[in-house]
Design a protein around this nucleic acid. Structure first.
Lengths: 125, 125
DNA sequence: AAAACTGTATTAATAATATAATACAGATAT
DNA sequence: ATATCTGTATTATATTATTAATACAGTTTT
């Protein structure tokens, strides 16, 4: 199995446990995780992120509350999503950032065409 | 004078003092503030944001370090920017968010055309 | 001249975030 | 069966972020 958090870099843009939650959702949106998939143990994720076990646990109990994962007693957690819930996650993550960026552009006087131009320019590294 | 922070809503996306710094830079990019302009007092900003004076002060000492504002002894701070520094601020804020969004889209398998479509769709509320 | 305003500094208290070190019950692998 | 792995819980500690309450030197307003 490919390591789900190997390309994930923690920065200081937000609390670590929130960044982990976000990255986990992106893993679902990118089809790395699908319904029924087993999730690596909290301990192994903590090690691969260089982060404390408690921090990972905080992220996962939040994901549990949101109904995105499910944990049988004393066993590994399992992804629990449907077409609808994935769509909901996508809207939450993608639309939030798009809306934010549009708001910023309007504030600094950049129109949609200009923005799309910048995006196309920046798309290839 | 129009209140510089009247449309500014603090959320929990980042520490408050960082959000204040970002908003101040946006005020410069949107030509609300220009070189030489006088900045309202830290106290009045703290009141209008419902935030502590110390928090505002932390933001402003950071802006001072970055050379964006200047403060004569015992007097109000003054905006100190040039064409170059404004361009630098614009790159810092705008490109950062665009780069972030592009990265996200690539992760969830959305191409440039799709993204621009979403943007145009979301541009008018 | 007095009052009200500047920026700045200090000290304390509190809440949120994160690490650390264990512990325990139960499942799994050897 | 024994060792190792699960998730979960607890307690303590450190750091950061924020609020709070003052204080002070100097400027501006009245």
């Amino acid at each position: 199995m490919k390591q789900p958090f190997e390309n994930f870099v923690i920065d200081d843009s937000a609390p670590v446990y929130l960044q982990i939650i976000r990255h986990f959702k992106i893993l679902i949106l990118s089809d790395f995780f699908a319904d029924g998939d087993e999730i690596p143990s909290r301990r192994s994720i903590a090690v691969s992120l260089g982060v404390n076990l408690n921090t990972v646990q905080k992220s996962f109990s939040e994901l549990e509350k949101e109904g995105i994962i499910e944990t049988p007693p004393n066993a590994k957690s399992i992804v629990r999503v449907s077409g609808d819930s994935v769509k909901k996650i996508k809207e939450e993550i993608l639309n939030n950032e798009i809306t934010e960026l549009i708001k910023l552009c309007k504030q600094v006087g950049l129109n949609a065409q200009d923005l799309c131009g910048l995006i196309k320019k920046n798309w290839e590294e």
